[in-house]
Write a protein that binds this DNA or RNA. Sequence first.
DNA 1: AATGCAATTGCAAATCGTTTGCAATAAAAA
DNA 2: TTTTTATTGCAAACGATTTGCAATTGCATT
Lengths: 143, 143
Amino acid sequence: MNQHPAHKPDYEKELRRAGVRITRPRKIILRILTETDDHPDAMEIFQRATIIDPSISLSTVYRTMKLLEEMGAIHRHAFEGGRARFEQADGEHHDHLIDMDTGDVIEFHSDRIEKLQEEIARSLGYDIVHHRLELYGRKRRKT
Amino acid sequence: MNQHPAHKPDYEKELRRAGVRITRPRKIILRILTETDDHPDAMEIFQRATIIDPSISLSTVYRTMKLLEEMGAIHRHAFEGGRARFEQADGEHHDHLIDMDTGDVIEFHSDRIEKLQEEIARSLGYDIVHHRLELYGRKRRKT
DNA sequence: AATGCAATTGCAAATCGTTTGCAATAAAAA
DNA sequence: TTTTTATTGCAAACGATTTGCAATTGCATT
């Protein structure tokens, strides 16, 4: 088990390569994404964008997120309660521990769990296409 | 890892004990729940109920499900896409493998995975309140 | 069996996150 | 610069779920 590093992809280049226009709203949204290493939801991105350019609309945020998602540049997570949250699809796969008090998301990865999942699916006659492992918890008080 | 058995709790008794009135719509919904061993969503329950008594409303289904959930008699699952699905909260905890083609839900349990989750959370300084492990897959073609 | 009253109902309207139709605008190709 | 076409903001639509409300119904009491 270990946390993962972060690196900043060049979304603009990726989008251009995908034949998409680099518009002013998109530029702003992409900038916000690269400057962020938490897991913001659409509304948060919208509000941050709105500071830079108040004319940006929530629809455009959603449309841009969908675009990036389809390109595989970001992942959309439906954690419990409320809105979907996004994160950069940089390195390797990881799962999430959600702090129930703060909403913070901690990433982790366990090869052993991944292996066990495979074994279970296989023993049930299935191939895993993807999975979702989310731990919901609170900071432990004592040590 | 192993599948789990099923047993049928007496919801009416539980509800009465909780000081809730046993109405005609509730009777019907409870009957449907006890007769079911899959993971129906509110709309499915509503449609099955509607056959028995066409005057039942979807709101009542939702309200009853919420009631049962609060009593701990059923669990609500937000699998990917669409509506929440419900299941009886009988025996022990289990996780779910969702058949992406049919929507079927297969229950499984792995002590080893549970243990590993605990370890991970602990090493990150957290206590797990609950978790969500869902495998999304397809029946494997060959063997 | 008839009464009384709070719990429950069905309905329509409201909610929340997200998506969509559309006419106006702006990227970028010519 | 002009043209072409993607993209925008807006408002309205969406799907799942919840809610306010007046009418009804369990059910404890007579």
